[in-house]
Amino acid sequence: MDEEYDVIVLGTGLTECILSGIMSVNGKKVLHMDRNPYYGGESSSITPLEELYKRFQLLEGPPESMGRGRDWNVDLIPKFLMANGQLVKMLLYTEVTRYLDFKVVEGSFVYKGGKIYKVPSTETEALASNLMGMFEKRRFRKFLVFVANFDENDPKTFEGVDPQTTSMRDVYRKFDLGQDVIDFTGHALALYRTDDYLDQPCLETVNRIKLYSESLARYGKSPYLYPLYGLGELPQGFARLSAIYGGTYMLNKPVDDIIMENGKVVGVKSEGEVARCKQLICDPSYIPDRVRKAGQVIRIICILSHPIKNTNDANSCQIIIPQNQVNRKSDIYVCMISYAHNVAAQGKYIAIASTTVETTDPEKEVEPALELLEPIDQKFVAISDLYEPIDDGCESQVFCSCSYDATTHFETTCNDIKDIYKRMAGTAFDFENMKRKQNDVFGEAEQ
């Protein structure tokens, strides 16, 4: 370990593993360490099931009705991949897709007046949907046509809207959309967690709705994908990429100290040895004095023996409960997957309800979601602090990732990755940087 590296990475969460992969592909010498004996950090999948019970201090362990412990891979952080989103792009560019198998999530649902409705995925579904009345549908269709044709580089498509100054509230007004449709559009399509976006320039919202539609167009059922064997497969896929390009991995490796000289990182000390480096990437748990708390998320993992009611017996789905429907500031989400994804025993389902904490009784906040899941065989409640770095790391060369937020997709995580890359490399992130180099010394032969 007593060696000189360009970059040392602490923690094998998804953000850290993707950055480690990119740095290795770009010719950097990388050492990647984790104090845990497993990959994934906060974003790991726990197996066998006995391990999950232990982690949540349920000492009696799983009953026999849960089947074989080894058949379970339970995500600690519930997220899906947008089919046309940035993480899929990263997987394709790096060819990490060859280590993973994905399934399309069967449906996306939205909560309205105590019931759940399928988010329409085709024009026919939209016309048949009970989510809105006849005239509302016509106006909504006009709005969707506007979004589909919108091109930020072609003012002819703006229809009198200025993407940089017109607020989204004004765009909704222009198409005369009612409150329910606005809730549905902002939260189930643009996937905002709160209503803060309404008074911001509309460009980002329009682009988010386009991303949803384009992702949906790829597979038809929903815009989301999920990897077989759980999300823990993602960091491992990128760790393989890093290793192929010469990255060194050490799990179960305690970090005793991060060594600084004149305010700059110069190395990491572990078990009496020092590895030197020019730059350091880590998750917040490794540098508690360089991060601040930015809120909390509650996630309740529920094991069920039945599909969720009114989802047409889907073996995977997402449910969004827009905040307006339950008098909150932030949406509540449910991600459900099952034995069909090799993450649970035969006939079992895993539904994870999550939201940003707003009160001193977080469990009560998630109740509307839990009511949709009854009866629940077993619950595991996790309340996590969200951390963000206190500075950009440019001076110390210590670059810290943000905690995983309450969103049900990876777009915010990818933004964090691109942002850290830019601060480390001094140049904007470009997907081309992730391409495997042809015929290089570490390149794998085609399968």
Rank of each mutant, 00 (worst) to 15 (best):
Y333N: 05
F143R: 05
P235L: 03
G133C: 07
D385V: 13
L372I: 10
L10V: 12
L203T: 09
K309C: 12
I303S: 05
K221T: 12
M434R: 01
D416E: 12
V25S: 05
E261A: 11
T124S: 07
C402W: 04
C335S: 12
M33C: 11
V366L: 11
K118S: 03
S213F: 15
A353L: 14
N433Q: 13
E16T: 01
W72V: 05
G107D: 04
Y197N: 11
A275T: 08
T413I: 05
K29E: 04
Y339F: 02
V381L: 07
F135D: 13
I352S: 02
E214R: 04
V265H: 10
Q164N: 07
G160I: 11
G220V: 07
S270L: 05
R68S: 07
V255S: 14
T15D: 01
V7A: 09
Q346K: 00
A382V: 09
E363Q: 12
V268G: 01
S330C: 01
G85C: 02
T122A: 09
S396V: 09
I300L: 03
A369H: 02
F431N: 03
F109V: 01
A188G: 07
K364G: 12
L373M: 06
S401D: 03
V9E: 00
Q346R: 11
T166V: 03
Q346E: 05
V326S: 02
E395V: 13
S222V: 14
P307R: 02
G267V: 03
E358W: 10
K309A: 13
R218T: 15
D2W: 01
I18T: 08
I337T: 10
T360R: 03
S20T: 05
A275S: 05
R139P: 05
M132I: 09
T157A: 05
G21F: 11
P163T: 00
Q179L: 08
E371C: 11
L59I: 13
D196K: 01
I332S: 01
S285T: 07
I8K: 01
D392C: 13
I383N: 10
G220C: 06
Q86D: 15
K329D: 09
I390N: 04
G67M: 14
I332N: 04
V334M: 04
W72L: 02
I376F: 00
R193G: 12
I298N: 08
A369V: 11
Q86P: 04
V334A: 05
S401T: 01
V147T: 00
K156N: 06
S108R: 03
N130E: 13
I116M: 03
A126W: 05
I209V: 11
A239D: 03
Y38N: 00
K118E: 03
L19R: 02
Y93W: 13
E374D: 05
L370R: 06
N315H: 13
E261R: 08
P63F: 11
